[in-house]
Write a protein that binds this DNA or RNA. Structure first.
Length: 258
DNA sequence: ATGGTGGCCCGGCCA
């Protein structure tokens, strides 16, 4: 199975590039974030024409997450299943080829003294609760998306530039650690020990060309899946050229379960 | 250099 995740920063603006990328890379399952679309605008039919079932959770201008699968998409679940969608449209899940896949867009947090930073930590706690309530860490579970957290200092272009900053703070990294302690693994690190490989670069100030990025787009998987992973690639080519997203896709390949 | 760019959709927010 080939599993990909990509924050597209508006699926409406990015659709030509998304279609081209899917044609080239042929993912079996694809997680998208920041579709910025209402349900009616989501291009269900265009993805169906390519052989993908889809589940989208979005309400228009902000956020919005989607899951595409050509290996089945069972039991879709949108949001945290609370009566009120007070957490934004930031998570959608489905069972694809026997794997419970979650496409997540963790709140940015803005700055550590902003109320949105507190919301980010609350949201991450909700994610941990959802996994505990609905998933078995002994099963095949994947949580993929834009975490807006750089797991460690290898994952930022200059740690000195991120002292007391959001995306690297202790509480954020601890919230990520809670997910890892539950039974997930940052599968990129199983295959790569190097630093300086990023998945997001600010549009401004030539950050991409200057190498000023962060690795904040993660694929977290349970042990049974991690042990079947054969490669993890961040496709920085997708950040080049005309009208790119500010994020690059992350692609993980798994061998078949025995 | 507290700038810069790009998405929403047209004044200001969000990343």
């Amino acid at each position: 199975m080939k599993l990909a995740t990509w924050n597209v920063n508006s699926l409406t603006a990015r659709m030509p590039r998304v279609l081209g990328w899917i044609d080239e890379h042929q993912p079996d399952v694809m997680c998208l974030q920041e579709t910025k679309q209402a349900e009616a605008a989501f291009p269900t039919a265009e993805f169906a024409d390519l052989g993908y079932e889809s589940a989208h959770h979005g309400d228009g201008r902000w956020n919005g997450v989607a899951l595409l699968s050509r290996v089945g998409l069972e039991d879709p679940a949108r949001g945290f299943a609370t009566a009120e969608e007070e957490y934004g449209c930031r998570i959608v899940a489905g069972t694809c080829g026997g794997v419970r896949v979650h496409s997540v867009y963790v709140p940015n947090g803005r700055t550590i003294d902003h109320e949105q930073y507190g919301f980010k930590l609350v949201w991450l706690a909700k994610l941990a609760s959802l996994l505990g309530d609905t998933c078995d860490p002994g099963a095949d579970v994947a949580v993929c998306g834009d975490f807006n957290i750089a797991p460690d200092d290898r994952d930022v272009w200059d740690p000195a530039a991120f002292v007391d900053a959001t995306h690297v703070s202790g509480p954020e990294r601890q919230a990520l650690q809670v997910l890892l302690d539950w039974g997930l693994e940052d599968v990129y690190r199983r295959h790569h020990a190097d630093g300086g490989v990023f998945s997001w670069w600010d549009y401004r100030a030539g950050d991409f060309h200057q190498g000023r990025g962060m690795r904040i787009d993660l694929v977290l998987v349970t042990r049974s899946l991690a042990e079947r992973s054969t490669s993890v690639v961040i496709d920085r080519n997708a950040r080049k050229g005309q009208k790119p997203s500010d994020h690059a896709p992350v692609v993980v390949e798994f061998s078949a379960s025995t």
